[in-house]
Design a protein around this nucleic acid. Structure first.
Lengths: 225, 225
DNA sequence: AGACTAGCGGAACAGAACCTTCCGTTCAAG
DNA sequence: CTTGAACGGAAGGTTCTGTTCCGCTAGTCT
């Protein structure tokens, strides 16, 4: 965003390249395993851990940066989808599909709880979910979306689809689209709809995931091989 | 299963009670967090770690026991559902719903990779998935289930729904039923069906999850509070 | 050319988490 | 009262990981 990688040479060019490489590596690694050690990021980026600590004060700051970046990507998708699709249903489907494709949800909610969120991030999160709610509302008032789904159901849908993780990134993406397609069939207004039990999660319940949990321990997620 | 808790008194009764308490605690704890330390199990059971090591040689053995128990529960559901519901769709819906309610999927697949599976477990797993395939086939040939879903889609569905984890156990269960209801609407044959992209996961892909991954590190899963 | 320095790699350090062992204690049974 | 099965939980030893530190490299500047 702010570092111009264009007109630089020599050492400065390497530094700029590393800036990018580290961010990309961190994204890849932490999406694969939110509890990965920082050395794994360095290895994936092909740099030493020192290079990492030169740019970020510590792990938390890296995580925060990554998460904020994720929120911005999310908002970019939420803003552009309705702009590119005049049909409300298409906009909704595109929005959901692209969020899943870019795996932005793993970057935000899945990483939250690993660090203390900044007020700025709360602001971004609120704005983002408001945008998402708008997209859903448009599809609903247009009569394309079944009326008993709520805006708060959306994060849950992301949670579910994002849980799919099999094989390499490409295969995972393909499988996710498969099950998203299935889900979308259930969400369309012309589907015979069974009344949904229970209420969607409240804002409170959804917000809990952003609260910093002292000690976010645990295992799971099989780092292949 | 084998320990009679009935006619015992004193120390032996306490031991028998602890057998149960430990198993229950382990189930609860490891479902909540598959990477939980063994001391967490002891604490939840209200016993010391010593009591735990008296019955199991180590963590792995406890995990294996738990997982095998889960597989048997799974099979019990898969066998009883068709027996209780003559309508193939009802049997299918009951099967899926009950597996999710008992959270048996977290006990099997989510714990696999944490230990080296026994041949016996492979046998059970194969038998279980074969039973599930039968239930699905019946619903499909009866024309109740959309024809483009495969038996291999079932574990994926479990994965997705099981990813929902919000609030206490009760609320989580309620939310899971909500999204299962939604999904079932997509699976019914009379739903206008969009062709599903990509192929369902292969047996190979699904099997990977049972392979013991040296070092199943990582974090994630927020232990509430 | 030669000195300077931003930036780098990775060993070393320090601390935390965890599995497992060990031992003193408890209490029902004989 | 003696005995020993079963228990609780501190201590041991290991592994893993965040962070620091320092010697080295290669552009850059005079």
């Amino acid at each position: 965003m702010e570092t111009k990688t264009s007109g630089l040479r020599g050492r400065q060019a390497e530094a700029a390249r590393n800036d990018q490489a580290i961010l990309d590596a961190a994204r890849a690694v932490f999406i694969r395993d939110p509890g990965a050690p920082i050395s794994a990021v360095a290895e994936e980026a092909g740099v030493g851990v020192g290079a990492l600590y030169r740019r970020y004060a510590g792990k938390e700051e890296l995580l925060r940066t990554l998460c904020e970046d994720g929120l911005r990507r999310f908002m970019a998708i939420a803003e552009s989808a309705p702009a590119r699709h005049s049909d409300p249903w298409d906009a909704f489907a595109a929005f959901v599909g692209e969020v899943i494709d870019s795996d932005v949800h793993s970057l935000t909610v899945h990483l939250a709880g690993t660090f203390t969120p900044t007020p700025e991030m709360h602001r971004l999160a609120a704005e983002a979910s408001s945008l998402a709610a708008q997209i859903l509302d448009h599809a609903k008032t247009a009569g394309a979306l079944r009326p008993d789904v709520d805006a708060r159901d959306i994060p849950m849908i992301f949670d579910q689809i994002t849980a799919i993780r099999l094989g390499d990134a490409g295969r995972t993406a393909a499988l996710r689209q498969r099950y998203l397609t299935l889900l979308l069939d259930a969400l369309r207004a012309d589907t015979p709809a069974t009344p949904l039990p229970a209420s969607p999660p409240s804002d409170e319940e959804l917000g809990v995931r952003w609260r910093h949990t002292e000690s976010s321990r645990s295992s799971q997620h099989r780092p292949r091989r």
